[in-house]
């Protein structure tokens, strides 16, 4: 099977949907002629033309507001917010407008749009260009929130997001853009709300998202090889809708739960999942669930400092080992 990068998967996913449906339009800063600051939209302007792929000013409120107005009246816009940290300057749309208009209007207003954004750390950009903001979005009723970890999932989940009738926040991890993965030829469409078991195991369940997925997988391989601990790694993929059934079934099998979260500690997605497991599967657990997160600090810029705070394979290995062997 051919391999492509996560970055090229973004291009292919958008192109697949734009070729399929003329109502799919794409807007954002530097996305058209320049092909995106992360080069994740190269060639779309040439392929689909200036009416469908549009550069905008640095006006995040205008970008998201325009996407919403277009979505309400019949288009299926994909809007790019360059860095997810910038959600803070257009959060009105994410928190107040997209997710509440259908409810407030008693079902009259539709909002089928996708907001793509570069999320996460690893690029040494410091505290305002590196955050993992999935929990900002997850807490809002009415939104759907997706964060793929592999090229094939980028295409399939992006297609599912574009075809979904609800507003979807699509978090691309900046540190995954250059990574590669196998992708079959032809159309790829996945389903939102489905977690993926990326490594089966018997002794413990490790939940991870986006950049934390390859780190969890690496940790699981080392735990098996070095300590004989066989971990099941689940890529959560979709925070809303959340595939609790896959998670609960895994905990029922392994009896231990670990979450690996890039977000700062408080109110991370893992806290919600741990509370669900505590509510519904407490007696399946042989030990306390453990959350492995970035500490509750703004992210530092220096590489040596940034590397100290994000969960690493080493930290996952040590945490799981100590927890299971205590």
């Amino acid at each position: 099977m051919p391999e492509i990068t996560y970055r090229d998967a973004v291009i292919r996913g958008i192109a697949q949907e734009m070729a399929r449906d003329n109502d799919v339009v794409f807007l954002g800063e530097d996305v058209a002629k320049a092909g995106g600051v992360f080069k994740a939209t190269v060639g779309l302007y040439e392929q689909f033309g200036p009416l469908r792929v549009r550069d905008t000013p640095i006006s995040e409120q205008a970008i998201l507001g325009a996407a919403m107005g277009a979505a309400m009246t019949g288009l299926k816009p994909i809007a790019e917010i360059m860095f997810s940290d910038f959600f803070a300057v257009c959060f009105d749309y994410i928190a107040n407008e997209f997710p509440k208009s259908r409810y407030m209007s008693n079902g009259q207003t539709k909002c089928p749009l996708v907001v793509r954004t570069g999320n996460g750390a690893g690029s040494r950009f410091g505290a305002q260009h590196s955050q993992s903001v999935e929990n900002w979005c997850m807490m809002i009723p009415g939104l759907k929130v997706v964060a793929p970890s592999s090229p094939v999932d980028v295409i399939g989940l992006l297609a599912a997001a574009v075809r979904d009738p609800d507003p979807v926040i699509f978090l691309e991890h900046k540190s995954l853009y250059a990574t590669k993965g196998e992708v079959p030829d032809g159309e790829i469409v996945d389903r939102l709300g489905t977690a993926k078991i990326v490594r089966p195991g018997r002794d413990a369940t490790i939940l991870a998202l986006a950049l934390m997925v390859p780190r969890a997988v690496e940790a699981a391989e080392r735990l098996k090889a070095e300590h004989g601990i066989d971990c099941e790694v689940i890529d959560v993929r979709s925070l809303v809708p959340l595939d609790t059934q896959t998670i609960l079934a895994s905990v029922a099998k392994t009896h231990r739960l670990f979450t690996v979260e890039e977000n700062p500690r408080l109110c991370g997605w893992g806290a919600e999942i741990v509370s669900i497991v505590a509510d519904e599967a407490f007696y399946d657990l042989d030990g306390p669930p453990v959350r492995i997160t970035t500490p509750h600090i703004p992210l530092p810029a220096a590489d040596i400092l940034e590397d100290m705070v994000l969960p690493t394979a080493e930290r996952i290995v040590e945490t799981v080992r100590r927890s299971l062997q205590s």
Binding site: Q61, I63, G65, A66, A70, A71, M72, M104
Partner: peptide, 20 residues
């Protein structure tokens, strides 16, 4: 197409409808 209670929110939204 809605009444908006966050000041200014609907100006960009109206732009989007006009874009369509």
């Amino acid at each position: 197409m809605g009444s908006y209670a966050i000041i200014g929110a609907h100006l960009p939204i109206a732009c989007g409808a006009a874009w369509r």
